[in-house]
């Protein structure tokens, strides 16, 4: 196991706020493990405990068999951490930042250049630019290079793609896949559900607890109800009508359609009939497979 977390609890404000509430999980070598959840779920506290920047109230955690309390120096030397907030030196250039991080980890850019080559080549044209003057996507790539320069055994990425446009997000995940191929274990958090499916396994988190841990496929397969998609040009109107339907269990806008479930089994015709009686004729109703986001919404509701 590259990461093992056992009954970790962390409270703030003299025990009144449970940031992390008795969490346990394990991550295997070479796995991309996702922590998926909104702000306040406890993701950042967990990262800070695993990178030895914060002490848990109780429980145990190990990274590469190093204990987060006793072996904190080994962890600090052996892992890479990209915090949620941009934490490079804004007044140093791209190249100076990278040199700085290589030096404090007692290595050189050349020594592990193969690890960062693909990423660094994209920012190399701007190597003399100050880090503070880079775009969001570029800052994120530089931060990843700096976290990788000492060839860490585990990479901790706290919301690396928040606020980054979807093209840069895709490029970033392509890079993570390449790092995975080099057997670097990755613990990554994200609020974006479309990134969840790219993880080998994931933990859905809310308010300091883990709602479920599994592969994306199994989480989707465990969805308890038949899901229907209704497509219409009058989303707001149909949304309200479906919510007022006596048998509706849940109903929400989802991309270009409305996703809806019912308390008792039903079929497309019954739903179409109900809506056409309300004057909505130009629409389609079909049974669909749930996405990870549907599963998460279902769990948050309960």
């Amino acid at each position: 196991m590259m990461i093992s977390v056992s009954h970790i609890t962390k409270t703030y404000n003299k025990g009144t706020i449970h940031a992390i509430n008795d969490i346990s999980f394990e991550v295997e070598k070479g796995e991309i493990f996702g922590l998926i959840g909104p702000d306040g779920a406890g993701k950042t506290s967990l990262f800070r405990i695993l990178t030895t920047l914060l002490l848990a109230d109780s429980g145990e955690a190990k990274v590469n068999d190093w204990d987060v309390v006793k072996d904190y120096k080994k962890i600090r030397n052996g892992v890479g951490y990209m915090p949620g907030r941009f934490s490079l030196y804004q007044d140093l250039s791209v190249e100076e930042n990278l040199n700085f991080f290589a030096t404090i980890f007692d290595t050189t850019i050349e020594e592990n250049y193969h690890l960062i080559k693909d990423i660094y080549e994209q920012i190399e044209p701007f190597k003399d630019r100050r880090a503070g003057k880079l775009s969001g996507g570029m800052k994120q790539k530089l931060a990843l290079c700096c976290a990788l320069i000492h060839k860490p055994v585990v990479l901790f990425l706290d919301e690396p793609t928040t606020g980054v446009d979807s093209v840069s997000r895709k490029e970033f995940w392509d890079m993570l896949m390449k790092l995975k191929a080099q057997e670097i274990t990755i613990l990554v958090s994200t609020p974006y559900m479309d990134e969840a499916v790219l993880c080998d396994r994931l933990a859905l988190m809310q308010e300091g607890k883990i709602l479920t841990i599994d592969t994306p496929e199994k989480i989707r397969a465990s969805y308890p109800l038949q899901l229907f998609a209704v497509k219409t040009n009058h989303t707001y109107k149909v949304l309200n009508e479906l919510r007022n339907y006596k048998d509706t269990e849940s109903c929400f806008a989802f991309g270009d359609s409305i996703h809806v479930t019912f308390k008792t089994p039903t079929d497309e015709k019954t739903i179409s009939k109900y809506l056409s009686d309300k004057g909505d004729t130009d629409l389609t109703v079909e049974k669909i497979e749930p996405t990870i986001e549907d599963s998460f919404i279902q769990m948050l509701k309960n």
Binding site: P38, T162, P191, Y236, I297
Partner: peptide, 24 residues
């Protein structure tokens, strides 16, 4: 300007309900 960052999918949708209501 990027109003829904950082919240869970349920809260994000409740926010959009508010937007729909205002637009209506």
């Amino acid at each position: 300007d990027e109003p829904t960052g950082g919240v869970d999918p349920v809260t994000r949708r409740q926010f959009w309900d508010q937007i729909y209501y205002a637009a209506d």
